[in-house]
Design a binder for these strands. Structure first.
Length: 479
RNA sequence: GGCGCUAUCGUCUAGGGGUUAGGACGUGAGAUUCUCAAUCUCAAAACCCGGGUUCGAUUCCCGGUAGCGCUACCA
């Protein structure tokens, strides 16, 4: 049996470092075992999934060099590798579960379910479906179908006993079936939920080892049950610890840069990124810390993964990156990397358009655009002193903007501009005054290239990081 | 709240019934270099708590505590 693993990202946002982290282990395990590594897009959430995100995720994983043997872009014998294109497959499988009595139609409205939960919570009950539609007679179901009442399909779950599972890293885990909800398998829109799609695809795609984040442990019983219902052989399950913020919570963009695009823009090398991600969970007995992807593949051992949730430490990542730059790049290669990083046509063109009107001689360009080629800016509290805008207002405005950044669907100058106009109204300020502190935070100076354009070029994560930094700087300042 | 997972320096980790508990990042001090960076040396810094088992537990077992996760027609 050849080992087959997969990474199955959901295209609902920026490419996440956690995705790269899980992908790395799947990649190493597959390569080490001489097996295949597959990329599958889990875009069953029609409301949140979008093609830009999918494209960005693929680009980031390619940037890192984690190449996949089968996937939406390269094809393969088990395609399509995009779940939104596999609707018919899921519907057929659900029909089978329905026929065999392992699943049932549920006509309950989301309002009723919300009320149900509201009643369960204070009563100390586990929130979950109460099985009302399980009691529907055949005739009642047929009538509801004739009336075109919308429904979902849920899986049946044993009422008693415990589900025993084996995790490759943690050994035996037991979860009582009474803790498992009658999970929706097929949503009202005809799309499957993760639980169904994941099991069906993993089986059909011949996945032998499911290596995924720890957050899935509690729903594994549902998956195991589905394998049993279908009569399929189960893969090996292996749950990886979750990456953490410095405060130990699950790594999130609110508190930390999580986008691979950010790290790319900051000028981290893919080699260092991958190396560091690997270091988060295991280490070499000899203590060497600098490892190439090939070396990691060669020495990789799932059993050596430590289980504590590791804090993502940018300082150590930077140190490692420095080693890669110093020790592995010739002057020429280094120059090429710099060029590829930001001194390339694609990045420079919009900057050229922005600066042409603002220079007299070409050497004005350096100071004018330094912030486009920097990470965090060395701003001080004094830089934010402004005759018309009290520091306290800036601070509040930064905090509000930071909140709204995430909600912004599309990161372009129109959207950014609209957001700032809205915030400006909210603060009942003049746009010119309101924006000045943002210029300082984002570009390092109150006079610079146009803010919205500059922000679009810099990207969401870098702007977020700079605003966060400005907020930090202002924390100790008195207005 | 319920359920689950986890627990070694501030951080990432090694180790494991008897060790001066090892390495790395970061921090501090020094050396070196025209400055800086890099490099080198040194230093401070950890086995969550309580019970068992044992001649002996940081290590094994149990309990607690804490952290995290899950508890959606999101993944």
């Amino acid at each position: 049996m050849t080992v087959r693993t997969r990474i199955a990202p959901s295209p609902t946002g920026d490419p996440h470092v956690g995705t790269a982290y899980v992908a790395l282990f799947n990649y190493c395990f597959a390569r080490k075992s001489g097996g295949q590594f597959i990329l599958r897009i889990e875009d069953t959430d029609m409301a949140r999934s979008n093609p830009q995100s999918q494209e960005a995720i693929l680009n980031s994983l390619r940037w890192l060099g984690l190449d996949w043997d089968e996937g939406p872009d390269v094809g393969g014998p088990h395609g399509p590798y995009q779940q939104s294109l596999r609707g018919e497959i899921y519907r057929q499988h659900v029909a089978r579960l329905l026929e065999e009595g392992h699943a049932f139609r549920c006509f309950c409205t989301s309002e009723r379910l919300a009320e149900l939960r509201k009643a369960q919570q204070p009563a100390g009950l586990r929130p979950g479906y109460d099985g009302r539609c399980l009691g529907l007679s055949q005739a009642e179901v047929e009538q509801l179908l004739r009336d075109n009442v919308p429904y979902v399909i849920r899986m049946k779950v044993p009422e008693q006993g415990v589900c025993e599972m084996t995790d490759l890293l943690r050994g035996r885990i037991e979860i009582g079936w009474d803790m498992v909800d009658m999970q929706v398998l097929l949503k009202q829109d005809g799309m499957p939920t993760y639980h169904l799609a994941n099991v069906v695809d993993d089986h059909l795609m011949g996945i032998t080892h499911v290596i995924r984040g720890e957050e899935w442990i509690n729903s594994t019983p549902k998956h195991l049950l589905l394998y049993d219902y279908f009569g399929w052989e189960k893969p090996v399950f292996c749950h990886l610890p979750l990456l953490r913020n410095p405060d130990k919570s699950k790594l999130s963009k609110r508190k930390n840069p999580t986008s691979l695009v950010y790290y790319q823009r900051m000028g981290f090398l893919p080699e260092a990124m991958l190396n560091y991600l690997g270091l988060m969970a295991w280490s070499m007995p000899e203590g060497e810390e600098k490892l190439s992807l090939a070396e990691m593949v060669e020495k990789f051992d799932l059993a050596h993964i430590s289980l504590g949730g590791p804090v993502f430490d940018i300082k150590k990542l930077s140190w490692l990156n420095g080693r890669w730059v110093r020790e592995d790049l010739s002057d020429e290669q280094y120059a090429e990397r710099v060029q590829k990083w930001a001194l390339n046509r694609e990045y420079l063109m919009p900057i050229a358009a922005l600066t042409k009107q603002r220079v007299s001689i070409l050497s004005d360009l350096g100071p004018l655009t330094a912030f486009f080629f920097s990470g965090e800016l060395p701003v001080k509290a004094a830089d934010f002193e402004d005759k018309k805008v009290p520091v306290e207002v800036s601070r509040k405005a930064f905090a509000r903007a930071l909140e709204e950044f995430d909600a912004l669907g599309c990161w372009d100058k129109q959207a950014i501009g609209a957001l700032f106009k809205q915030l400006c109204d909210e603060f009942q300020s003049k746009l010119r005054d309101f924006l000045r502190p943002f210029y300082v935070a984002i570009t390092g100076s109150p006079t610079s290239t146009p803010l919205f354009d500059s922000m679009e070029i810099l990207g969401r994560d870098l702007c977020r990081a700079r605003l966060r930094r400005a907020l930090e700087v202002l924390k100790g300042a008195n207005s």
